[in-house]
Design a protein around this nucleic acid. Structure first.
Length: 323
DNA sequence: AACTCCAACAACCGCTTCGCT
DNA sequence: TAGCGAAGCGGTTGTTGGAGT
């Protein structure tokens, strides 16, 4: 038995908002706040909309100080860097960019930034395709193009064709397997924190896993509560440009014996001629992102460049009008 | 001018998390 | 402490408008 829907979808208006609806919602919230209950809001205002829809409209479009479009180079840089560090956690990324919404950033990333970056890579990479992991898995980091000074060249991974008995790069167990092979560490504690940090890749916490991980030389997964995540993000931001591929390359080259049985994850078929994916195809480096970044030390340096964020400031940034 | 393609963005969907009872 | 409902969040889809042919 499924969960009851939050509203009767047949009896609420859907689709684009009209200026009248916007005005109603905006003026009501400005005067009365949300009342802490979005679902109760539409009837109060006389809007035939789902509460969820009202909430989204307010957060993404109507609330004050929202900026749309026109992302600056600095914003690009921050988005890239944070994406490298923490993945697609748009709400956290948005918290670093006052006036930007998670939806906006997500859209910007998916429609422009990603293509811009990978498009650039295509230009550099051309139709190169080969068999040596150390010449193809990692793309040169020597980049004189300053368009995205923060962005390391990304290894492009092809969606892995799979059968039922083959590992898949996109499934959690395969990722986990690769991590283990590379020496990742996930104690129960690590796992708990990691899940908070990157719930997209939850790890199971079997004792076997634990025993494997505990003696591992490196801890590959960023594991820290949010403040540390952000601090780590800055750490990675600082070093990403120079170290991302170098470290991945180092990791791969120095752990090849550990990768036995995982050839599917890194052999030549894994590499694609990016010309095959010009319009937002599967760019599965994302799946790899969480573990190609080494765990930085818990840094105490704080953020630079005016993007210092305290956890307590999150809500102020995101919900400046909240009661 | 008509059509097609595609980029950009708004909105929806469904899962997870959180807080209250 | 379990159960429930609302909010939060990220992925996905739908819509629209502009560029290209």
């Amino acid at each position: 038995m499924g969960r009851a829907p939050c509203c009767d979808k047949n009896n609420v208006k859907r689709g684009p908002w009209s200026p009248e609806e916007d005005a109603k919602l905006k003026s009501y919230i400005e005067q009365n706040g949300t009342g802490g209950n979005w679902i109760a809001l539409p009837p109060k205002i006389g809007l035939n909309r789902c509460g969820k829809s009202c909430r989204l409209r307010w957060l993404n479009y109507l609330r004050p100080n929202i900026k749309h479009g026109g992302f600056s180079e600095e914003e690009d840089r921050i988005i890239c860097s944070l994406y490298i560090s923490i993945g697609s956690r748009w709400s956290i990324i948005a918290a670093q960019l006052p006036g930007r919404t998670d939806n906006d950033i997500k859209n910007y990333w998916n429609t422009r930034l990603k293509k811009k970056l990978f498009g650039k890579q295509r230009q550099k990479q051309g139709s190169r395709k080969g068999k040596e992991i150390n010449s193809n898995m990692v793309i040169s980091n020597n980049n004189n193009n300053n368009q995205f000074p923060c962005w390391p060249e990304i290894p492009i991974l092809q969606p892995i064709p799979y059968s039922n008995d083959e590992p898949r790069f996109n499934d959690h167990s395969s990722i986990k397997k690769l991590l283990i092979k590379l020496g990742g560490k996930f104690s129960d504690e690590d796992q708990t924190i990691n899940e908070a940090t990157n719930p997209q890749y939850p790890m199971d916490n079997s004792l076997l896993m634990q025993s494997i991980y505990q003696n591992s030389p490196i801890n590959l997964i960023s594991s820290a509560p949010i403040d540390n995540v952000l601090a780590n993000a800055q750490y990675n931001m600082d070093r990403a440009a120079s170290s991302f591929t170098a470290e991945l390359e180092h990791m791969i080259l120095n752990n090849q014996q550990k990768l036995d049985g995982l050839e599917i994850l890194y052999d030549q078929d894994m590499l694609i001629d990016i010309s095959a994916s010009t319009s937002g195809g599967n760019l599965d480096w994302e799946a790899m992102n969480p573990f190609v970044l080494p765990l930085p030390p818990i840094v105490d340096k704080g953020f630079q460049q005016g993007v210092i964020i305290q956890k307590s400031a999150f809500d102020e940034l995101r919900y400046p009008m909240a009661q």
